[in-house]
Design a protein around this nucleic acid. Structure first.
Lengths: 264, 264
DNA sequence: CGAGGTGTTGAAAGTGCTCAAATGGCGTGG
DNA sequence: CCACGCCATTTGAGCACTTTCAACACCTCG
């Protein structure tokens, strides 16, 4: 088990990657992030002045559940898994985030500002690291920031609701089908659609609450039922309508799966 | 299937139940609610002036998923189930709320302000009904309200995370054990603890994502494994330590189950 | 080439679900 | 007060799905 990274003294921070006020070093992320929408420029600049771009490597633990929280994180590039682990080594994957998404915000409201889950880079990743105290200060003063965070949390909540529904009502092949739908572009080209699985199948399995073996078998079942083409992590869907019906026939229907994506 | 109540024209609102500015009709709820913490009295009074106390009966549908949202709701007394239903009649229970808890807030951030799940009274219930537009107006202007809602949503999120972990890592008897722990007072008397199930076992089963039959069998397994006393909806636990170990041995441990309760 | 990680496949064992039927409590109407 | 019917709960039997354990194929990297 690798020790949690202490990003405050991370040796990985090259000076050129320090955010500066105006230059190319300032993450465009901060300006375009939905979370920061409507925030006065002065606040964005204050954030920019105090945040850092930090690279982490595949497998690195960014923080662990129970750690005292020092930072919030925004993914500049890469993939991060949020999971809770038990003593006996099994884990429950709560989220898998990618570019532009915020994580660590659980600590804002937890007792004693500790993280409530563990964040691990599942690929080489560049993080924008925002000091928690700074964020807390502005959260009190800037309604726009509170509203942005509300929007973010509300989006998460919707995804969780859907996941809970999925786990309750669907079997493994259907859950996978639903996941595939959410990977599709909203406006599909006519004819075949090619879906690229964003990370390894073991993690996909974990995210959907099943074992890797189950995932493998369920996917091949999906393949034979819907005549999918599967080549490594590329999946070709010839009949989207059939996929939708297969995966979401048992959904609540309030929210077609394709409308639901992780918001930032 | 009963039609959704239209609480705007509900015949159930007796004049005496209309909230007034200063009198005994004003729900003390509004003053003490954590959600409203730190809110200026003027805003609380504005809310009080425009909200209504509305009784609903067991089984009434308060709103349905997909409905255009008119109101937020706070439970004055009673129990409300939040669930998503499929066309074929099965449902996934997302939450079961009681006194002092807010629901319907999903609509604040959903596309077009629609509810994303269905709310049903599972017992005779009195609701405090707050017009959504009024709430939205103040949400923009009052940082304290945004922060209160953030706290509420963050608490929900934690419960969802735990539920997801529970579904992923635990079997039926353990999930029930975990639920029982959360019903216990935090400081327990030495010796036996008597737990009262708050509503019927079918709903409990649904809330934990299992069938009533499975719940029944799992509970009796728990009974024989831990020497519980079960009489109707009263459960006597003689060995709390054993229950904790049984139910939460496989938890992530970041959050002992007993610390987690639904916040308002 | 060998090692390790990733993914697939097979067989056996659980675990929970479905369907069916019995039990028991409770309120209503007689 | 009792009989009845309704509903929640329990119990049984069989089945479907998922997990577990084991073995193997495949790929990449050193």
């Amino acid at each position: 088990m690798e020790p949690t990274l202490d990003l405050h003294q991370s040796k990985g921070i090259a000076p050129a990657q320090r955010a500066t006020l105006g230059g190319e070093g300032v993450p465009a992320l901060l300006r375009t992030l939905p979370l920061m929408n409507g925030l006065p420029d002065t606040v964005k600049l204050a954030f920019a002045a105090h945040c850092q771009l930090v690279p982490v490597k595949r497998g690195d633990v960014i923080f662990a559940g129970g750690d005292k929280a020092r930072n919030l994180y925004i993914i500049n590039r890469g993939w991060v898994k949020i999971a809770r682990e038990t003593l006996d080594g099994s884990e429950a994957v709560l989220d898998v985030f990618c570019d532009g998404q915020l994580f660590g915000e659980q600590a804002v409201f937890s007792e004693g500002h500790v993280y409530t889950a563990t964040a691990t880079a599942v690929d080489d990743t560049v993080l924008l690291v925002l000091p928690l105290p700074l964020f807390l200060t502005h959260l009190q003063k800037e309604p726009a920031l509170a509203l942005g965070l509300l929007r973010t949390l509300a989006g998460r909540q919707r995804l969780r609701d859907m996941e809970l529904e999925s786990r309750t009502l669907k079997n493994a092949p259907q859950r996978i089908g639903c996941f595939l739908l959410r990977l599709c572009p909203l406006v599909q080209p006519a004819g075949e659609v090619v879906i690229h699985l964003p990370y390894d199948k073991t993690l996909l399995a974990g995210q959907m609450g099943m074992q890797p073996e189950t995932f493998s078998r369920a996917l091949s079942r999906l393949k034979s039922d819907l005549a999918l083409g599967i080549k490594g992590s590329s999946i070709t869907v010839s009949d989207m309508r059939a996929l939708r019906q297969y995966a979401c026939g048992g959904c609540s229907g309030t929210y077609p799966c394709q409308e639901l994506r992780a918001g930032s």
